[in-house]
Amino acid sequence: MDDLTEMLKGTLEGCVLQIIGSEETYGYAITRRLNELGFTDVVEGTIYTILVRLERNGLVQVTKRPSERGPARKFFALNDAGRKELAAFWTKWEYLSSRIDNLKEGGQ
């Protein structure tokens, strides 16, 4: 789908938290996962900036591991603060999507 970028902006961080939350992983794999989900416009750079911010805000545990080719990779896993943030994301998401559904269906 085209032109999702603007709408996706606020929720992409939550998506990344969710992916990291299910297993320890690295930037390229996260990007691939999102691309496969249908968010084809998401590039690695976007995910990189989100990972930098998650690290800066102390939501992830970072481990450097050597890769088969090229430089070492940074792997990311959620810590307690990250899990809290993820739970908060889903709470907000459910609130938002239920209200918007209501609006669409003409309810209150």
């Binding site: 930037g27 390229y28 590039v43 690695e44 750079g45 976007t46 990189y48 900036t49 989100i50 911010r53 080719r69 090229g70 430089p71 990779r73």
Partner: peptide
């Protein structure tokens, strides 16, 4: 991050997208 992109054989804009300023701001 760039070194990883190079190792993967990608061009820089392929890696970070065309809006370099948006990348920097993010």
């Amino acid at each position: 991050f760039f070194e990883e992109g190079v190792a993967a054989g990608k061009g820089v804009l392929e890696l970070i997208g065309n809006d370099v300023a948006a990348f920097a701001d993010d």
